[in-house]
Nucleic acid binder design. Structure first.
Lengths: 224, 224
DNA sequence: GAGTGGTCTAGACCACCTT
DNA sequence: AGGTGGTCTAGACCACTCG
């Protein structure tokens, strides 16, 4: 929290400061809720103008990590607080029962594929209540989670997340290395598992800076 | 394009300027592509500082209406340009064929409902190629389109759009007034139509300023 | 080289919240 | 009353793009 800014660097001061503050938040030095240094405090601490401080905080606000309350102060927002989930199976309208065999046949089975996988990370994580219910495992069980960023079949920037059921992982003897660079369901398909129990879930959020950079997104474009 | 800014107003200068420019864009006075006045030009035209001009343009950038190219200028972006559509029926994983009767029964039929409808607009619009294919009508046919903003069953800010098939509209003798304040599928359900041909589509985008205000969203929260 | 957007300084006044 | 964020001014230098 006492590092200095590099005035010779190519990366602008307000970005450096934003990165510093983001790290402080991520690593718990600036806990969610009350605490956040005032703009004037940050000015004198880092020896920059208020404009620069405000730009830095502006970055964090746009990312949704920080909210400012006029007259009261700025606050770290719990990133999971208003992350919304939508069950995509029933969005908008109900699907009709097929009325004729013909209409049933002509209904295309579409599939969602990621093209140009740009980054994939695999890691072991305890399940959230919601996902434990889905997988029918005990809450907090460690499961293999994969995150893949890329573009979907329609060209939309997407981040897909897949959870591997421990039972499947054990039976198939899968490990992190097997998944590297492949989208989890594809791996399973190759290994002979035709389909996985699953649910279609769609979230939308503003991309984190690195994902935004990786996908080359302009400002104001959310990720599904 | 030559209106003045009201320095006594409660609404800040940069907002007024942003609103002015947005209107100029929407009403075609600032066409997409090349044209956009430089920041210096806007300074002298409206007698404000560059900071104020930049704030105004910043608003439009965050909305995705304008993109800036360092050294070249700012450009109006076609709002429909990179609007992405995702077929939600096949997102992520394929749904397995049910293996036992039991598992089939326990699969819940979820429905997506809007609670607290805050705003609904109905209007007649020519279909886009994509939607004409969906409805099986000629391209450009005028159909009744409804947009409803509110919160979904999970509390996520949502904007839902429904297209009414001309045939149904005629047979049911529906008009704009019937839809006012109700979500289209609900109206049909009441009228005795059990279900509508449809497809589940999910989009994400940054909210327009008025929708953002209506839903009371903080910065950085996209709308599904 | 002229023009553009990007960054930064050093001030100022205001509206708002907390005590 | 004192502190906070929100707005605005009037400058400056830089990196970049284009003809």
């Amino acid at each position: 929290m006492k590092e200095k800014l590099d005035r010779e660097s190519l990366v602008p001061l307000y970005q450096q400061l934003a990165d510093l503050l983001r790290r402080d938040i991520e690593e718990g030095r600036l806990p969610a809720g009350v605490a956040f240094p005032s703009e004037r405090k940050l000015m004198s601490r880092y020896q920059v103008t208020r404009t620069t401080v405000r730009s830095a905080i502006g970055v964090l606000k746009q990312e949704g990590t920080v909210v400012a309350k006029h007259g009261a102060g700025s606050f770290v927002r719990d990133p999971k607080a208003d992350r919304h989930r939508v069950d995509a199976t029933g969005v908008g309208m109900r699907r009709p029962a097929p009325q004729t065999q013909e209409s049933q046949n002509e209904a295309p089975t579409r599939s969602f594929r990621l093209t140009g996988i740009l980054e994939s990370t695999e890691r072991r994580m305890p399940t959230t209540p919601w996902i434990s219910e889905l997988l029918q495992v005990a809450d907090g069980t460690e499961v293999l989670v994969q995150e893949v960023t890329g573009f979907d079949t329609h060209g939309a920037p997407s981040l897909c997340r897949g959870w591997l059921h421990p039972r499947v992982e054990k039976e198939m003897a899968l490990s992190e290395e097997d998944l590297e660079g492949y989208w989890l369901p594809d791996v399973l398909a190759i290994k002979g598992v035709p389909a996985v129990e699953g649910e279609d879930v769609v979230e939308a959020a503003m991309p984190t800076p690195n994902i935004k950079q990786v996908l080359g997104l302009p400002d104001g474009v959310p990720v599904l």
